[in-house]
Structures are given as structure tokens and as C-alpha cells.
Design a protein around this nucleic acid. Structure first.
Lengths: 215, 215
DNA sequence: AGACTCAAGTTACCGCAGGTAACATCTTAG
DNA sequence: CTAAGATGTTACCTGCGGTAACTTGAGTCT
């Protein structure tokens, strides 16, 4: 039948696509995000035009690659967010999950968030970057905002508050995590605790230092 | 004398450098961060090699350009942070200063934070990105961390706490600002208030919504 | 069987970017 | 007057993303 035939072709194409993505993944993780289309094609054992037939352009390949990792990370975060526990525990679990993920696979993290760092000197970095590094942050922010709005009673402005907080908290997690990953100034648990303390209002509650007007 | 001669030459070189930077600024603000070295050279009325003699490579030009804007923004923020007022007022003033800055000059903002978005389709984006978008965030985080440590009494772990909070708060401001700038879901004042509320512990204080276990 | 279709795959090329070498020119010191 | 050294130029290299045009090979119709 026509349908079975088409299905066969589609399956074959899908498998191929997955193989290509895995090859691309290997190259990107090895060479950094500046990996060239030629390098990826070579790793996959084929040549450039095929990549272009499958993914359109470099951005398409990047997007497909990023989507896989982003989805995986979001799944982990959702799990932590949905665990049955007290609010503070959940927040800490979510923070820890995120930090554990970026700690475990910094190459993937750098690819998603800082897509133009690796690569040889003198060679133009590539990958259309930026346009795709935001999406992960945005998606995380949106997800968290929804969860907050669903579960918390925030009064009349709850919609706005929840969304702002979602993006804000995600940004906090991101920037602190990025800094921590680079400098490793403390343990993961300490970082989690410090951030949760911040969210729990310790900034407002802290006393002024003697002699100054206080922050 | 040798010294006066050198000084004269150095002054001339510095002036030239400033002129080139201003030309580069114009181009980047007009064409987006994908501006090519050729375009910048043309705008400055000269040719490429001169740019390379002055800035080494594209990254050098980018860095010089970014430093100017970054320093300017940091000065504004320091002013808001140092104003004589209560803590909450200062926090709100700082948030508002940042948001006002990115609102007033989104082109500059996008150049600093998402340096590879503009540019024609089909053309490889440029500017070595990423490596330089972090610095602004990092610098802001460090500055804020110092201020917090200087002024707040945070007990034994004050050093770590202050630094974590510095980076975390900056990240919150950044992500929320980025999202807000893109979607404009509310007024600036509302955003400032919502973020300050978050920092003031309203997340911990909020009640659970009826029917659920609460975030 | 033999012509037909359609996807996978190739080579060879284009345009354009970043970056450099080699040559010209003008100013200034000795 | 000459030598140095910065300023500027043209012309070129490399490597990238992306595409056109051709070849191959598996399966389909008659």
C-alpha cells in the first residue's frame, strides 16, 4: 500500500535524522559549539548537502539539537517541581536538579547557553547562537511561572506576579549557576541553600552592618 | 623630546581609536551585531587593516565597544545603589535604573547580551559573542555582591551569601528584563514592584491555592 | 524485463566573512 | 637630506555556510 510504503520511508528518514543528530552531538560535544557543518557531516560519514536537506540550515540543526537537550532538562525540572514535598523542599530540589544537570554535562550546558565559546582561535565562531540561547531560559521561565500561578494564591495580580517570578527565579538560577560552574566557589548544596534563603526573604530580613546606611 | 613626541602620537592614536569606536557603534546600532568589519571600516571612512591594527581582531573591537557601554551602565547602577534611601527603595531604584537603560536603548542592550541576532538571513552572524555577553552579567553580579557584603550583616557565611546573592539577583533582573523587553507584559513600575516583592520574601509568605499541595 | 520515479548521495562551485602580506605615503627626528 | 615609523592602501588567502547539477540505486508501474 501507499501508506505502508510512505511510513517505511518516513521511518527510515527519521532514523537517519536521529543518527545525524547523534553524530552532530558527538562533534559539538567534542569540538565545542563552533563545530562546522563539514565536521559534522564527516563525523556522520556523509557530506554537507545531506545535512542541509535534513535540517534546512545550520540554525535548523542547532534548533533540533538544542530541543533534545532542552526537553530533557525540562523533564527533569518538572519532576523535581512536581515531587510531593513542602514548598521550600521543592524549590531546593528544583535548584539542585538544575545545578546537578549543568555540573554533570557542562559541555551540553555551554552549548545551550553560551553557544559560541569553544572553537579554534582565528576561526570565526559559528552557530547562530543567541537566538537559541534565550529559548531555554524563556521556556524554563514560562514553565515555572505556570506552576507558580497554578499552586500559589497571590491575590489579584497573580497572573503577572507568577510570570515575573517565573522568569526572575529562572534567571537567578541561571546566573548563579553559570558563575558557580565557572568559579566553583562553594559546594552545590551551599549554593542551593543560599539561593533558597534569598528567595525566602533573608535579604529583606538581614540587619544593616554597623556604620553604614545599609543596602 | 622623545617623550613629547610619543605623547603626541599616543594622543593622536587615542583620538583615532575613539573615532573608530564611535563609527563602529553607529554601524552596530544600525545593522545589528552582525555588522561586518568591512562595513565598520567603511563607516569610519577607512579600510579593514586599520581596524585590525587598532583592535587586533573582531573580538578586540567587540570588547572595546562592550566595555564602553558596560562601564556606562555600571556607573548608573552604582549611583542608584549608593543613593541615600531605605533598602527597599534602593533595590527598586536599582532595578528601575537597569530596566530604564535597556528600555531606552534596546539596540545597545541586545548587542551586549544577545550579540548574534540581527543580521541578514543566510549570512553567518559574526562577532565572537558569548565570551563577551557573560562579562556584563558577571561584572554586575560581582559589584552587587560587594555592595551587599559591605552593607549587610549576614552572619558567618556572609562572604559566600553576598556573592551568591549578587549574581542571583543580577540574573533575576536580567532574565525578567529580557522577557519584559520582548513581551512588554506590564509597565516598568509593575515589574520593579513584582521583583522587589519576590526579593522581599513574598514567595515564601504566599498561601497555597485551595486544592493543591502548593508550590 | 525494461522504462520511470524519487530519494540519497556526490562533486564542484558561489559569495562573503575574518584576517594578512606587501606595497605606498606622509610626518617628523636627527 | 635621509631614515624611521605610523597611516593608509590594494590584493590576496583561508574557511565558512549554502546551493546547483549531476550520479547512483532501490523500488514501482505496465
Amino acid at each position: 500500500m501507499d501508506t505502508t510504503q510512505r511510513t517505511d520511508q518516513e521511518r527510515s528518514a527519521d532514523r537517519r535524522r536521529r543518527e545525524l543528530l547523534e553524530a552532530a552531538d558527538r562533534v559539538v560535544l567534542r569540538d565545542g559549539p563552533g563545530a562546522s557543518m563539514n565536521a559534522i557531516a564527516a563525523e556522520a560519514g556523509i557530506t554537507k548537502p545531506i545535512l542541509y536537506r535534513h535540517f534546512g540550515d545550520k540554525g535548523g540543526l542547532y534548533a533540533a539539537l538544542a530541543k533534545r537537550h532542552t526537553d530533557a532538562l525540562l523533564d527533569s525540572l518538572r519532576a523535581a517541581l512536581d515531587a510531593p514535598a513542602e514548598r521550600r523542599e521543592r524549590v531546593e530540589a528544583t535548584l539542585d536538579t538544575y545545578l546537578a544537570a549543568i555540573e554533570a554535562r557542562p559541555q551540553v550546558y555551554r552549548f545551550l547557553m553560551h553557544p559560541a565559546e569553544g572553537g579554534q582561535p582565528g576561526v570565526d565562531q559559528g552557530f547562530d547562537v543567541g537566538k537559541h540561547s534565550a529559548p531555554l531560559l524563556r521556556r524554563m521561565g514560562e514553565e515555572l511561572g505556570k506552576v507558580i500561578e497554578d499552586r500559589l494564591d497571590l491575590g489579584p495580580d497573580s497572573h503577572r506576579l507568577a510570570r515575573v517570578w517565573g522568569h526572575g527565579i529562572v534567571g537567578m538560577m541561571f546566573a548563579a549557576g553559570d558563575w558557580w560552574l565557572g568559579e566553583r566557589p562553594c559546594t552545590r548544596a551551599e549554593l542551593v541553600r543560599s539561593l533558597a534563603d534569598l528567595l525566602w526573604g533573608r535579604l529583606a530580613a538581614a540587619g544593616d552592618k554597623v556604620g553604614g546606611p545599609g543596602f
